[in-house]
Design a protein around this nucleic acid. Structure first.
Length: 589
RNA sequence: GUUCCCGUGGCCUAAUGGAUAAGGCGGCGGCCUCCGGAGCCGUAAAUGUGAGUUCGAAUCUCACCGGGAACACCA
């Protein structure tokens, strides 16, 4: 917003600075605007270090920091009186600081936010389409905390991209075929025939899978599973029908989870849909001499390093097993092609954990070699794993996974207990809704408030801690703001002037409101929801500070009026930033 | 062996190459005649090591140390 709102002032200042520097025989100086770090007043900072440094480089004997300060002072003197819209100037530490007139700035910010409402911070339409593929669960299996990071990250990325001005297509790619599915069906036929899932479908599906997995250790059982696999491969109608029915249960289970998380998809792809086209594509690769076929003694593979003349960089990509059955690579190649044939994409993002970086690099490179001109639009967004304390990887085989529904149930129960204490008079259904908003918000914030490249160590206590830098803290600030507005018992006052003398807490809060538009852009460019997570917390903290030091309802009428507007603006920006993270902003809790 | 990621107070996490490295948790000490205490205030405590680039480095480069990951038929 600062960029949008102060272009005139900036260009005016720039001209003034250039005029002065010309008298110092400096042409075409590098002038940039930064933020003034110390809170209390708003303004623009112009560092003179780059100018002084370029003088030094051109041979002039100057000590850069001293010279920067000298230039800052010189400019200050030459400008003289503060230009319109500014209150005063300052030359310090090699910076020229230009402070805005507080009253005008504050009013401009608050009015802008209130007028724009939920649209405040939205970027202008870019007319570019981005597909984001995320979640990618396997049917017939569990949904655990590791999957959760992917969904939450992918969902937040989509919201941020949309808000930043992109057209977003949410894609999901489900692993609905393979050994794990056959194992599941084998166990079902042998030990659970006729059973149907209960309330929690994913949980039930996983129980049968986990049992199958442990029974599979027995070689006799393994032989039976292989036998069933053969029937599947021969498309035995009975098995195909069972597959369709049981897959549907999984899909319904995932739908339950996505509904709870507030996620939905525009396009769902299945592995089973791209397997045949993938095998056909492999044949083309062989025919073109790109892939080497060693069947039946070896697999079909592409020696990328040999093709590209690189060394130990792209390695070897196996595209078909020696028995002719498909692999991930068999299917990811046609899937990418299908995506671009269905949509006119400017970018295709894969939200997949960091361990698959080389694999995706190989896939993207292979598509480039095949001559698809959109290959440079493929982008892998890697994220680190969720581990258990002691850097233990979650493994369903070793029973160390934290299941999604167990986690949500525990978090919701704890939130409910607190609501019971805080708001015993609320209706039970309302309490449940609040508990869910708080619990899911806390889990989401934990995942989003660290960089994608950092390992998350899952710890029950930390995940369920509702204090400190966590979603409930932010939601609470939102509740407090809403509470003030509600108790004001009147419509929000029309735009009013702000005083020149503002409390520090007011200044800091207003300052943070202005950051949303730029932070949305930064978060979208870098695919980093963390930026928004931090802003949301900073806003909540600033609001709480304001709340404690500046009374609204019992202030004198003119103060009350502008503060009510400030509260409304703050509430709006907090809600928007929470929404971008997929976190609910309740009105009471 | 090749490549990638991560090393910031006791623990967790921030910081477009810019001013005094910012928060949270946990310690310790305070705050409910006042808009909701899931809150607020105070307090001690940190950039793995060594070079380099730069006016300026937590940030960029290189080496080393420590942790994690990937590297032909798992997904």
């Amino acid at each position: 917003m600062r960029e949008i709102m102060f272009e005139n002032e900036k260009s005016f200042i720039k001209t003034k600075i250039k005029d002065y520097l010309e008298t110092e025989a400096i042409d075409d100086p590098a002038i940039e605007f930064r933020q003034i770090p110390f809170s209390g007043e708003w303004g623009l900072a112009v560092p003179l270090f780059p100018v002084a440094a370029s003088e030094a480089r051109s041979g002039k004997r100057v000590i850069v920091p001293q010279r920067a300060q000298e230039l800052a002072e010189g400019i200050k003197t030459s400008i003289g009186q503060a230009p319109p819209g500014f209150s005063h100037l300052e030359a310090i530490n090699g910076y020229l600081n230009l402070y805005f007139s507080n009253a005008a700035y504050a009013r401009r910010v608050v009015d802008t936010v209130i007028d724009a409402g939920a649209g405040f911070g939205r970027g202008t339409a870019r007319h570019q389409t981005v597909m984001v593929e995320y979640s990618q669960p396997n049917t017939h299996k569990s949904f655990h905390v590791g999957h959760l990071r992917n969904v939450i990250l992918g969902g937040a990325i989509c919201r941020i991209l949309e808000f930043a001005g992109y057209e977003v297509i949410r894609a999901n790619y489900l692993g609905d075929i393979g050994l794990h599915v056959v194992k599941w069906m084998w166990n079902y036929l042998k030990n659970h025939r006729g059973e149907v899932p209960g309330e929690n479908k994913t949980h039930w599906m996983n129980e049968i899978y986990a049992e199958a997995d442990s029974l599979f250790q027995d070689s006799e059982n393994e032989a039976e599973v292989r036998e069933l696999y053969a029937r599947w491969n021969a498309r035995d109608p009975e098995i195909v029908a069972l597959w369709q029915e049981t897959r549907q249960w999984s899909l319904e289970g995932f739908e339950q989870i996505y509904n709870l998380l507030g996620e939905s998809f525009d396009r769902i792809y299945f592995e089973s849909d791209v397997e045949d086209s993938g095998i056909a594509l492999v044949q083309q690769l062989i025919d073109r001499g790109l892939a080497q076929d060693e069947r039946p003694d070896g697999p079909v593979f592409i020696d990328l390093d040999a093709v590209l003349g690189t060394k130990e960089e792209y390695r070897v990509l196996v595209v078909l097993r020696s028995d002719g059955s498909s692999l991930y690579a068999t299917k990811d190649l046609p899937l990418a092609i299908q995506k671009f044939s269905e949509y006119d994409l400017d970018k295709s993002v894969y939200v997949i954990d960091v361990r698959q970086s080389l694999y995706l690099k190989q896939i993207f490179k292979t598509l480039e070699i095949l001559g698809f001109d959109w290959a440079d639009k493929l982008y892998h967004l890697p994220y680190e794993l969720v581990n258990l304390p002691g850097n233990v990887t979650m493994s369903s085989r070793e029973g160390t996974v934290v299941l999604f529904d167990d986690l949500v149930a525990e978090a919701t129960q704890r939130a409910k207990d607190i609501v019971e204490v805080k708001n015993p008079e609320l209706a039970d259904s309302v309490k449940d809704k609040i508990a869910e908003a708080v619990a899911l918000g806390a889990l989401k914030y934990t995942m989003l408030s660290r960089d994608n490249t950092k390992v998350v160590t899952f710890d029950w206590d930390a995940a369920l801690d509702f204090n400190g830098q966590a979603a409930p803290y932010i939601q609470y600030a939102h509740v407090r703001a809403g509470s003030i507005l509600r108790r004001a018992g009147e419509a929000l006052p029309e735009a009013v002037d702000f005083p020149d003398q503002l409390e520090k807490a007011e200044v800091d809060l207003i300052e943070l409101l202005t950051r949303l538009p730029a932070e949305v852009q930064r978060a979208s460019e870098d695919f980093r929801p963390l930026v928004i997570a931090n802003l949301a917390f900073d806003l909540a903290k600033a609001f709480n500070d304001f709340y404690n030091t500046c009374h609204v309802l019992n202030a004198e009428p003119t103060v009350r009026a502008y503060r009510l507007r400030l509260v409304a603006a703050a509430k709006q920006v907090i809600a928007t930033s929470l929404n971008l993270l997929g976190i609910a902003a309740p009105s009471s809790m």
